[in-house]
C-alpha cells in the first residue's frame, strides 16, 4: 500500500518536473526542473533496489551534468526568452499531436507485450553488495569491449570539448 502511494507520488514528481523542463520559458528554471526530475528518477531506482545505479544517477547526472548546464546558462546570463517555442499554430498542433500519438503507440504496445511480467515473479536480491559485485564482474568480462570503447570516446570528447570552447590564444584572452 505505502509502496504504491510512494510510486505514484514519485511518478507525479518526475512527470511534472519533466513537463516543466519543456514548458517553462526561462532556461534556468528548465535546468532546475531537470535536476529535480533526475533526483526523482534516482529515488525511483532506489525503490527498485538498484541502489548503486541510483547513487551513480545522483552523482553523475544531478551532481555533475546538470551543474554543468546550470553553470553555462548562468555564464551566458540568459533571460526569459521571447521566442521560446517554435512559431506557427499548425506546426504546434502537429508537434503536440505527434508526441501524444507516439506516446499512445508505445504505451499501448508495451501494455500488450509485457502484461505477463508482474511482481509475482520478482525475487528479492540477496544483498545489495552482492549485486554490485555481479555488476562489476559483468562490466569487466561480457561488456569489456563496450567499456573500453566508452573510455576512448570519453577521451575524444574531453579533447574535442576543450578545443571547441577554448578562446583563441589561451584561456584568459578575450574572444574579440
Amino acid at each position: 500500500m505505502t509502496s504504491t502511494v510512494l510510486f505514484y507520488l514519485l511518478q507525479f514528481l518526475i512527470l511534472a518536473s519533466a513537463l516543466g523542463v519543456v514548458l517553462i520559458p526561462n532556461p534556468i528554471y528548465c535546468a532546475l526542473m531537470l535536476a529535480v526530475s533526475m533526483i526523482g528518477i534516482s529515488a525511483l531506482f532506489f525503490s527498485l533496489e538498484a541502489y548503486f545505479v541510483a547513487g551513480v544517477q545522483l552523482i553523475v547526472y544531478a551532481g555533475a551534468v546538470m551543474v554543468l548546464f546550470v553553470m553555462v546558462i548562468m555564464l551566458f546570463n540568459l533571460k526569459n526568452e521571447v521566442v521560446a517555442f517554435s512559431k506557427g499554430l499548425l506546426s504546434k498542433v502537429l508537434k503536440v499531436s505527434l508526441s501524444v500519438l507516439i506516446f499512445a503507440l508505445i504505451a499501448s504496445s508495451l501494455s500488450m507485450s509485457f502484461a505477463d511480467l508482474n511482481s509475482s515473479q520478482l525475487q528479492p536480491y540477496e544483498s545489495a553488495m552482492r549485486s554490485v559485485k555481479e555488476l562489476s564482474a559483468l562490466l569487466f568480462t561480457k561488456y569489456i569491449f563496450a567499456f573500453e570503447a566508452i573510455s576512448i570516446l570519453l577521451i575524444l570528447v574531453v579533447v574535442g570539448a576543450v578545443s571547441l570552447a577554448r578562446a583563441k590564444g589561451g584561456t584568459h584572452a578575450s574572444d574579440k
Binding site: 541502489y51 547513487g55 544517477q57 545522483l58 552523482i59 545489495a128
Partner: peptide, 13 residues
C-alpha cells in the same frame, strides 16, 4: 544500503 554511495550522491547536490 550502500551507505557510502548514498552519502556521496547526496553531498554532490
Amino acid at each position: 544500503p550502500l551507505g557510502i554511495i548514498y552519502i556521496f550522491g547526496v553531498s554532490s547536490l
